[in-house]
Structure formats: C-alpha cells, structure tokens
C-alpha cells in the first residue's frame, strides 16, 4: 500500500515526506529511510512513473565531464594553467589541451594565457575528490576578449538556455549579442553596449523568475519593450 504525498511541481523543503511505501523509488535529491521517501533540498517535485526526484531551486554547481564552463586563470604552472571554476574546486588546463600549436619547452606560458584571462573550456575529467581537468581543443573554446561576464545561479542555467536553446536564441536575436553560457553559472555577453545591457537584464529576470511558466513570452515582451 503506497501513497504519494506530493503533486508535480509542488515546492518541497528538506526533510519533507514525499511518499510512503516501497512502490516508489527515490530519484535525484531524495533519500529513503525505512518506508518513506524524503526530500533532500528545497526544490520542485517531479514524478516520472515510480521515480520521485526534486529539481533544486538553488544550489552549488557540481562539475560534470562534458560541461562547457567559463573559467578564470589564477596561476601558471610548469606545463599548464590553474583555472578558477567558480566552485569550491579549481581546474587544471594542460598545455597540450590549450592549443594545437607546438609549444617549446622554454616558451613563456603567460604570453598564451595570462593570469586573470577568462576562458571558455570543456571539462574532460573529474575525480571523486573533484580534481578537474579542462580542455580548450574543441571548436568554440577560446580565450574571452571584450564584452562582459555576468554570474547567475548555476541551477538556473538550463532555464536561461531554454528548451532546444530557444530562450538563449531569442535573447541573441533580439539584442544582437553573442552569448556563451557556462554550466557553472558564468555567462559571457558580447555585443553593442545597449545590447549587452539589455541581455544582462533579461538574463537576470530569467534567474529571478525561473520557477514560473510562460517565461519565454515574458522575456520576449521585455526585450521588445526595452528597445
């Protein structure tokens, strides 16, 4: 005899009982104790079949292999750079992953990437202790020049991008900016000064209202009104 105590998209707090009985399975951000399933974060409940999971409304970014992030060079080592990832853990960018060009042993690495440069990178490896390796060898991964970098909560990144990148495409079209969203919550905007400001405001609005539906229309109206 199992019973589910929550509805889809209901807001739950940590420790809230989601379901009683063994017919349901604890998914992401939930845990089971005896026959009850509890929530582990503040978030929105989602039920798919027998699995109950919680979509967090806030929370730290967890580095994952394959994620594109924006980082900042904090130090230069023997054969690479240390990169701040806007999390509790810094990443390592090896020379061989930074450029396809051959680099001589005595070459000055700060000529290629200097401290405080921002870069777009892919995460290629994460250990259980959260040691991160990043790479710049894919297309579109490069050093950031010009524009502005803004920070949002990393849990809101999927909302900023939208389904099949619909939201971010909309902002790009309306503001004429080039926008790169890092999964760690850093966003690079490059365009005209007015366009950059409008895009920044739109993204901040999405961050604030991310738990609401019908956001794409709101953003569209906002961008039209702002011009």
């Amino acid at each position: 005899m199992s019973e589910i105590l929550i509805e889809e998209r209901k807001i739950v707090v940590p420790g809230e009982v989601l379901a009683i009985g063994l017919d349901y399975v604890p998914g992401e951000n939930t845990y089971r104790e005896e026959d009850k399933i509890f929530s582990k974060v503040l978030g929105l409940a989602a039920v798919s079949g027998r699995v109950i999971k919680i979509t967090p409304l806030a929370g730290p970014y967890m580095p994952k292999v394959g994620d594109k992030i924006i980082g900042r060079i904090t130090d230069i080592a023997f054969s690479g750079w240390r990169v701040d990832t806007n999390t509790a853990y810094s990443a390592m960018l090896n020379v061989k992953d930074a450029t396809t060009r051959f680099i001589k042993k005595e070459e000055d690495l700060s000529k290629i990437l200097a401290i405080d440069d921002y870069i777009i990178v892919d995460i290629i490896n994460v250990t259980s202790q959260r040691l991160i390796d990043v790479s710049m060898r894919e297309l579109g991964l490069k050093k950031i020049q010009g524009g502005r970098i803004i920070e949002i909560n990393s849990q809101k990144v999927p909302r900023v991008i939208g389904k099949k990148a619909s939201m971010i495409t909309l902002i790009k079209e309306k503001t004429g900016c080039e926008i790169t969203v890092g999964q760690n919550g850093l966003i690079w905007i490059l365009g005209s000064p007015e366009g950059e400001a409008a895009a920044e405001r739109a993204i901040k609005m999405i961050e604030e209202k991310s738990h609401l539906s019908g956001l794409t229309e709101q953003v569209e109206a906002f961008l039209r009104g702002g011009r």
């Binding site: 940590p14 420790g15 845990y31 509890f38 582990k40 974060v41 929370g59 849990q155």
Partner: peptide, 11 residues
C-alpha cells in the same frame, strides 16, 4: 542553508 540549496536531510 536550505535556501542556499545545500543538501540537507531535514530542517
């Protein structure tokens, strides 16, 4: 802590 999205067993 809950508002920050830190994983918590309970309040």
């Amino acid at each position: 802590l809950a508002d920050a999205g830190i994983p918590m067993k309970d309040l």
